[in-house]
Amino acid sequence: MTEAPPGSDGRLAAVLRDCGSAVIAVSGGVDSMSLSSFAHRTLGSDRIRMVHAVSPAVPTAATDRVRRQAIHEGWSLRLVDAGEFADERYRANPVDRCFFCKSNLYSALSRLSDGLVLSGTNTDDLGDYRPGLAAAEELGVRHPFVEAGFAKSDVRALARRLGLPDLAALPASPCLSSRVETGIRIEADTLQLIDDIETWLRDRLEPETVRCRLRPQGFFVELDAATLQALGSEGRVRLIRGARSRFPELAGRAFAVEAYRRGSAFVGDKQVVNG
């Protein structure tokens, strides 16, 4: 275990010590991974355990990342099925789908722990429409980054201080269900196709941001402005042809390439969403 440095890291360490024994819901993103690394180095495996939910909605790369970090740092890690795919309220993909996802996740984690459940939520998340936070409140989940006053930039800075530069630079990548337009039923095979398409595009183009959205008309790939500009109109045509050749599941469905728009798969009263 390490001694807490002064300043923000000291505040975070104090929050974690106040939590006592706890499990951390680690998704594979920069927030939960940084919290897990800091908590493990500060308190040790006797008091902090990590739990990662394996689900069709979780990108394969995220699960692989969690496994590697757990081995590298000696985390106490458990992989579980949170059970959200057995919940028809989640599968129906309503506006508040995340509430049902997080309710299932945090309930599963609570059954595994005699202590608290912790999340990687930071203060920037509080300004978004996040029904999952309501589920966390109902189940008594604590958010150490929020309690210590960490914004997203502070989390990335923490990752750098921990000697994890690749994690610090990791782009945001919400769950794969966030790619499916509100009201379209969540299906495991659809999420697998979305993950496969995004992985193929990352390997091919190395974009800063890529999302493969499912809308009633079909699949729409969204890319950051720089990648889209470098691609050009001819490049878009080649990319679409390549995707149709690579993924026969696209046959008979629309497939297009366009500019990234944050949360564009969300259709509802709230207009500020992650994704």
Rank of each mutant, 00 (worst) to 15 (best):
G29V: 00
G28V: 05
D81N: 15
E181A: 00
L79R: 03
P131D: 06
L191D: 04
L133P: 04
Y106A: 12
A151D: 03
A159S: 08
G242Q: 08
T60E: 00
H40S: 00
L43R: 10
G268T: 09
A13W: 10
L167G: 03
T190N: 06
A188D: 07
M1R: 09
V272E: 11
V80E: 09
G132Q: 12
V15H: 05
V272T: 14
P171E: 00
L109D: 09
D81V: 15
D124W: 01
G140N: 12
R238E: 01
L223G: 05
F85E: 14
S110T: 15
S110E: 06
S27C: 12
P6Q: 10
A61E: 02
D64F: 04
P5G: 08
N104M: 13
R253I: 01
R78Q: 03
V58M: 01
F99R: 04
A148V: 03
S177H: 08
D64C: 07
E88C: 14
H40F: 02
M1E: 13
A134R: 11
T190H: 13
N93G: 07
E137I: 04
P165K: 11
L231A: 04
P94M: 00
D64P: 07
T123A: 00
S178R: 15
V95L: 12
E3K: 10
A4S: 14
L214G: 04
I184H: 09
A134P: 08
A136L: 05
S233D: 06
V54H: 02
